[in-house]
């Protein structure tokens, strides 16, 4: 980062052009103000990303023989991973997890909540809104702990009692349908963020347009499909981008409940990386998995940005 130099270009529109002398004296000041931030970000965010690339090309281990003398192994880690059923399965689980929890579940429920809470006739908005927000504002460990009791295999577990009302036998949810369970947990946690984003977007839709469409005889569903939705397209794609990124990075919520089990059925990519690198101490392979994950996220990000025509 060599960005702390001050050059005499014509300044951007909204700052009054300062005299040249003055601007050159600002160099050290800028370095002083921004320098520490640049150093911290470089050292603890940018450097690890590049260091991962290096590590992914070696057979670095935490312990054992290769720990003392890591060798350069080229793309071996990548060819290993891309032909490894566990890793490919893990990517598949990450995709399923993200698709059903973030892109479908949170988006649909968040949109329903945002639309209902924007109805003028709905009473108790504050109460309903606060209820939906609760899952988001508690730490993820508390969220997992709360769900551990809901999904408990015990016949007295909350969900088992509920299904028991319909005559079903108690089930060990995290053993029988682990992936579905964590998808539902993650939907629960993310509805609020979707709701907030969509509420802000809906506020910007001119009420006259809705009114006009209603007067022309459009049903509520038609209005939403043909008037509202096209108008909030940008924010919706922006939300999809943000939620996809944060869902791919989910770790604690799932690790707390299943630790990747049973039999690796909930071993999403974040858990795969953690297991490989820090529990089996295969740093090289773990780093290669990180890089693959990173590339996928970057590609997704670019696709979304293009679809949404977001200007950053």
């Amino acid at each position: 980062m060599t960005s702390t130099l001050d050059v005499p270009v014509s300044a951007a529109a909204n700052t009054p052009p300062l005299p040249k002398r003055r601007r050159q004296r600002n160099g050290p000041l800028i370095a002083l103000l921004l320098g520490p931030s640049v150093i911290l970000i470089t050292l603890f965010i940018v450097l690890p990303a590049f260091y991962s690339i290096y590590l992914s090309l070696t057979n670095t281990q935490l312990t054992g023989f290769a720990a003392r003398d890591p060798q350069f192994v080229g793309l071996d880690n990548f060819t290993y991973l891309l032909s490894n059923a566990d890793f490919l399965g893990s990517l598949g689980q990450t995709a399923t997890f993200t698709l059903f929890s973030a892109i479908i579940g949170q988006t649909v429920l968040g949109m329903v909540a945002a639309i209902l809470l924007s109805r003028p006739w709905l009473r108790g908005k504050g109460l309903f809104g606060a209820a939906v927000l609760m899952p988001m504002i508690v730490p993820e460990v508390v969220a997992s702990l709360a769900w551990a009791s809901v999904l408990s295999n015990n016949s007295e577990g909350t969900l088992n009692r509920l299904t028991g009302l319909f005559g079903a036998d108690p089930t060990d949810w995290l053993q029988v349908v682990p992936l579905t369970s964590i998808i539902i947990v993650n939907i629960w946690r993310g509805v609020a963020f979707a709701m907030i984003m969509f509420q802000a977007a809906l506020e910007d839709v001119p009420a006259e347009l809705i009114e006009a469409a209603r007067i022309d005889g459009a049903s509520a569903v038609q209005v939403f499909r043909h008037v509202t939705l096209p108008l909030i397209r940008g924010p919706v794609f922006l939300y999809l981008l943000l939620t996809t990124i944060s869902t791919v990075g989910v770790f604690g919520l799932v690790y707390f409940l299943t630790q990747g089990g049973p039999g690796g059925q909930t071993r999403i990519a974040a858990i795969y990386i953690y297991e490989r690198a820090l529990q089996f101490s295969q740093i090289g392979i773990g780093s290669a998995a990180s890089i693959i994950l990173l590339v996928i996220v970057l590609v997704l990000g670019i696709v979304y940005v293009r679809l949404a025509k977001v200007e950053v």
Partner: peptide, 18 residues
């Protein structure tokens, strides 16, 4: 802004070694 794209689990291993 772009840094927000990077999922934390993807850099945690290298960070640990550093």
């Amino acid at each position: 802004l772009l840094i927000r794209v990077v999922p934390a689990p993807a850099t945690i291993v290298a960070l640990y070694l550093i």
